[in-house]
């Protein structure tokens, strides 16, 4: 069987959907963050596959930047989460309820 761009697009769409569902249904902030990383990796698959079939390097450059930014976000995000955990001793999103309406 030949692998066509459509296969990559479907894989990427599936991964992206799993990520979105993960963000919406999970309650642990770290798991939610991992689901967001899945979404970003769906983007990367899309970009690399398109770059390969378009024979155009811009997509691969884009992927390098996405990976770098995802790493920066992870560093900052885990730092923020650590500060939160020190005060509240929890990483459950349902307990982030000081401010509402």
């Amino acid at each position: 069987m030949e692998i066509t761009p459509a296969h990559y697009t479907v894989l990427s769409a599936a991964l992206f959907s799993i990520g979105v569902i993960g963000v919406l249904v999970r309650r642990n902030v770290i798991i939610i963050f991992m689901a967001i990383e899945l979404m970003l990796n769906a983007v990367n698959i899309n970009l690399v596959a398109h770059a390969r079939y378009l024979e155009n390097l811009a997509g691969q450059v884009f992927v390098v930047f996405v990976i770098a930014v995802a790493a920066a976000e992870a560093a900052v995000g885990l730092g923020i989460l650590l500060a939160f955990f020190r005060n509240k001793e929890t990483v459950n999103i349902d307990e982030m309820n000081i401010m509402r309406w």
């Binding site: 992206f16 963000v23 963050f33 976000e73 923020i80 939160f84 005060n87 999103i93 982030m96 000081i98």
Partner: peptide
């Protein structure tokens, strides 16, 4: 409050980026 604001902004910001 500030912790909570940062976590919420970070999570929704990262999600919107995706």
């Amino acid at each position: 409050r500030s912790n909570e604001a940062a976590v919420k902004y970070f999570l929704l910001g990262a999600f919107s980026l995706g």
